[in-house]
C-alpha cells in the first residue's frame, strides 16, 4: 500500500511521454507493416508501466522505438519535458545516458568475445564516466548488486547460465546509472525457478535506485505483479490502459477480457470452474490492415460500427482508458455500480 501512496505523490511527474508514435516497416511490393500505429502514453517517474499483448502486437517494436533503436515513422518522444529527436546523434547520445534496455534473450544480447567486465564497463567508457580504476571498481560493485561475484568479471558470457546472463544484462543496463529502463521480456527465456529471482532483483533495484520501468511481457501474472499501470496492445494499437488493480477488477475491452480469461491458473479447482471464454481465430496480419477496430474480426460483440470506424482511446473511468465503441454505450450502467 505504501507503493500506491508513493505513486500518488509523483503522479504528475511524467518522465517519458510518447505522442502519436508510429513505426511502419516497408515490406516490399508497396505493402506497409504497421507495427506500432499511433500510440500516445505517458510513463511517470518511478512507476512500472507494464505493456502486454500477444506476439506481433508491436510491444517490442514500441520498446525499441522508445529506446531509439528504431526511428519512429511519425510521432514525438519527450523525455523529462524535453523533445528528443532520435535522428540527431547528439540527442540520442544524451538520451542513452538516461535510458537503457534489458533484452529478452540473454544468449543473443551479450557479445561472446568480450569478458563480462568489458561488457559492463563499455557504456561507462562511452559516456566518459569515471577513470579506469574507478570503472573497474564500479564493475565489481554492479556484479555484486545483481548477485554475482567479482571474480565473474574476467569470464566470458558462455560460462554462465541463462539466469546469470540475464543478471549480466541487468548490470550492463545499470552501469551508466540510468533513470529509465525498458525491460523487453526479461524473464520469458528463463526457467520458472529463476524467473522469480530476476523479478525480485528488478523490484529491489527499483526501490533502491528509484528507477522507472517499462516492462514488456506476455505473461499476465507477472505483469500484474510487477506493474503499477498496465497497457494492453493489440495489433499496433493501445486498447486499454489503467492501474493494474483497476484493469483486473474492471476489465472493459473485450480483448483484454479474453486475454485475462485465457491465462492458465496453477490451481486445478479454479481452472475447472473458469468459464470457457476462449477467443477464436488468430491475430490478423498487421500488413495493410482494414479500417475500423482491429479487433473486430475476433470480437464476439463486434457491430457494423466497429468494422467501419476506428475507436479512439477515451477515459471511461478515472485513469482508465479504453479504445472500444461498445464500452461507451455500456458506460453509464456498469461503471457506476
Amino acid at each position: 500500500m505504501a507503493e500506491t501512496a508513493n505513486n500518488q505523490a509523483v503522479d504528475n511527474q511524467v518522465l517519458v511521454s510518447l505522442h502519436d508514435i508510429c513505426k511502419y516497416f516497408n515490406v516490399g511490393r508497396g505493402k506497409t507493416l504497421k507495427a506500432v500505429d499511433g500510440i500516445t502514453l505517458d510513463i511517470r517517474k518511478g512507476e512500472t508501466l507494464g505493456v502486454v499483448g500477444e506476439s506481433g502486437c508491436g510491444k517490442s517494436t514500441l520498446g525499441r522505438v522508445v529506446m531509439g533503436i528504431y526511428h519512429p515513422t511519425k510521432g514525438q518522444l519527450t523525455y523529462n519535458g524535453k523533445v528528443v529527436d532520435l535522428k540527431k546523434t547528439r540527442d540520442r547520445f544524451n538520451y542513452s545516458k538516461k535510458a537503457q534496455i534489458i533484452f529478452q534473450d540473454p544468449y543473443a544480447s551479450l557479445n561472446p568475445r568480450m569478458t563480462v567486465g568489458d561488457i559492463i564497463a563499455e557504456g561507462m567508457e562511452i559516456h566518459g564516466m569515471y577513470d579506469k580504476a574507478r570503472r573497474q571498481e564500479r564493475v565489481y560493485e554492479l556484479l555484486e548488486t545483481v548477485g554475482l561475484n567479482r571474480e565473474h568479471a574476467n569470464r566470458f558470457p558462455h560460462e554462465f547460465s541463462g539466469g546469470q546472463r540475464q543478471r549480466i544484462g541487468i548490470a550492463r543496463a545499470l552501469a551508466i546509472e540510468p533513470e529509465f529502463i525498458v525491460c523487453d521480456e526479461p524473464i520469458s527465456a528463463l526457467d520458472v525457478s529463476i524467473q522469480s529471482q530476476v523479478i525480485n532483483l528488478l523490484k529491489e533495484l527499483q526501490g533502491k535506485l528509484g528507477l522507472t520501468y517499462m516492462f514488456i511481457a506476455h505473461d499476465l501474472n507477472i505483469v500484474k505483479y510487477i506493474s503499477d499501470r498496465i497497457a494492453v496492445m493489440y495489433l499496433g494499437n493501445l486498447v486499454e490502459l489503467a492501474d493494474s488493480d483497476e484493469i483486473y477488477a474492471h476489465t472493459l475491452h473485450p480483448y483484454s477480457q479474453a486475454l485475462l480469461a485465457s491465462v492458465p491458473i496453477p490451481d486445478p479447482d479454479r481452472e475447472a470452474q473458469k468459464k470457457a471464454t476462449v477467443l477464436g481465430g488468430d491475430v490478423p496480419s498487421p500488413i495493410n490492415p482494414k479500417p475500423g477496430c482491429k479487433f473486430a474480426g475476433r470480437c464476439p460483440r463486434a457491430t457494423d460500427r466497429c468494422r467501419a470506424e476506428t475507436p479512439a482511446l477515451r477515459e471511461v473511468r478515472p485513469h482508465h482508458f479504453v479504445a472500444c465503441h461498445l464500452v461507451e454505450s455500456e458506460q453509464e450502467a456498469p461503471a457506476q455500480a
Binding site: I194, Q197, K224, Y225, P266, D267
Partner: peptide
Amino acid sequence: LKSLPTVDTDRSEKLVSIAGT
C-alpha cells in the same frame, strides 16, 4: 508453486525464489 505470482499476489509481497541453479 510459491515462486509463481498469480493474479491475486500482493505486489508488496516478495516472491519466493529458489536460490542457485
